[in-house]
Design a protein around this nucleic acid. Sequence first.
DNA 1: CTCGGATGTTAGTCACCATTAACCGGCTCG
DNA 2: CGAGCCGGTTAATGGTGACTAACATCCGAG
Lengths: 201, 201
Amino acid sequence: MTAPRTPTRNRRAEILRAAAELFAARGFHGVSIEDIGSAVGVSGPAIYRHFSGKEALLSEILLDISERLREQGARLVTAPAVPESPSGDAYARAALDALLHGHIDFALANPALIRVHERELDNVPESARRRIRRLQRLYVEEWVTVLSELYPDCPPARLRAATHAVFGLLNSTPRSAGELPPQAMAPLLHGMAVASLAVLA
Amino acid sequence: MTAPRTPTRNRRAEILRAAAELFAARGFHGVSIEDIGSAVGVSGPAIYRHFSGKEALLSEILLDISERLREQGARLVTAPAVPESPSGDAYARAALDALLHGHIDFALANPALIRVHERELDNVPESARRRIRRLQRLYVEEWVTVLSELYPDCPPARLRAATHAVFGLLNSTPRSAGELPPQAMAPLLHGMAVASLAVLA
DNA sequence: CTCGGATGTTAGTCACCATTAACCGGCTCG
DNA sequence: CGAGCCGGTTAATGGTGACTAACATCCGAG
């Protein structure tokens, strides 16, 4: 009863992975359905056996990324790494550390996804775009909530702007690829982010 | 003898400005020549009286941005804001400040150009791409040179990675548009950048 | 004047590409 | 066995869009 599903799922996932890679490299409009097909060894319209169209492909990719980030954010903030119940500040600091680690690991492990996530939202049809934006907003709010505990005198607009700036910093990974190995890049980004946020005090 | 040239230059500049705006909003492949024409009040193939094609348009936009950044970088570093000749460190610190100010002002004044500069390099034909990359590399090296005076024990690869990260931070302006007025955004970004670079010590 | 270049215009032309149609083999389940 | 879906294939089809052709206008120089 579930025998034929496994290959289907694999193929679907394969297509999504290949499409994300191609979109990252050449942009949504720079990639044809034929390109995506041949990247997974089938050719052209076979894609339509798995997805309703090119836009649906992009929508699913972006929804997946946004959902993964948001979910990871919610999980890390809710269940922080420090089991004891410390002072509010130490708690918030641990939560920020967790958010940073989660985001950095994701960005270093999936530079192509980060690229697509940053660049292609405009090409998603309206309804999916709304859902993606909602997830992104929730993710930003996770950060803002944590930061507002650390820097209670800082107005929210400033916290939001700083959060976007830190995302820009962390998401620089696709551009500085190869400069430094990930083992060196991760702590560098972490340190830079923490230091830059300290000016909010 | 020079009478007819002025309108031509204006039209050319008008087209470049409109094209950059459109490329920023919808991406290179998402904009048609017809779109660009009607944005400046002429329609369609009139563009070819001024440019050899769509790619030439993008090439010129990116070359101009890269050249402006690099030129500004070279100028600010060579002729720093502090006239007295201070200790090497203070000198380098002033140069870094100047680079930061220059980049931030540019990014806040031209978010669309920043966006195009970040996203569309892949769509430029090979020969122009090489020249653009060279300019970008030179600009990065300006920063690395200044930083290597401030943090002499830091390996160049690390300085380069940090520079890219700071660019990501500063170039977040198109994404956090509207969160904060530019008068508040500029010092925030400046402070965050300086603080983040301090971890290189 | 009037010639010629600079700028535009409108109507092709040609490629490319998303999507659909029509058709096919294999595998599972009855 | 055989019916039917699953996942593929190759040929349309239709639209879009870059670029070219052919033709008009304006305007300054000689």
